[in-house]
């Protein structure tokens, strides 16, 4: 398991864990489809983290993206 922020742009990763106890953050993430087991492609790291999940692009700022761990 490693932090999502460590994955280079262009790589594919499977979400393993959202490392927070904040329910609101968990719900926000799951509303966007960032749920353990889902595979995402890291598209960009700046100006904010950009992921592709299925046919959607999802933008997360670095603080939120820092909570995501992948396999």
């Amino acid at each position: 398991m490693l932090p999502l922020l460590k994955k280079p742009a262009g790589s594919v990763a499977v979400i393993a864990e959202i490392a927070t106890c904040d329910r609101t953050v968990i719900r926000k993430m799951s509303s966007l489809g960032i749920v353990p087991g889902v595979s995402v492609t890291v598209l960009r790291h700046s100006p904010a983290v950009l992921l592709q999940s299925g046919h959607t692009k999802i933008a997360l700022d670095r603080n939120l993206a820092g909570l995501v761990y992948v396999k």
């Binding site: 966007l32 950009l50 959607t56 933008a59 939120l64």
Partner: peptide, 10 residues
């Protein structure tokens, strides 16, 4: 708290 940014880009 500072703002959190998360958004779907259509």
């Amino acid at each position: 708290q500072p703002a959190q940014f998360f958004l779907e880009l259509p």
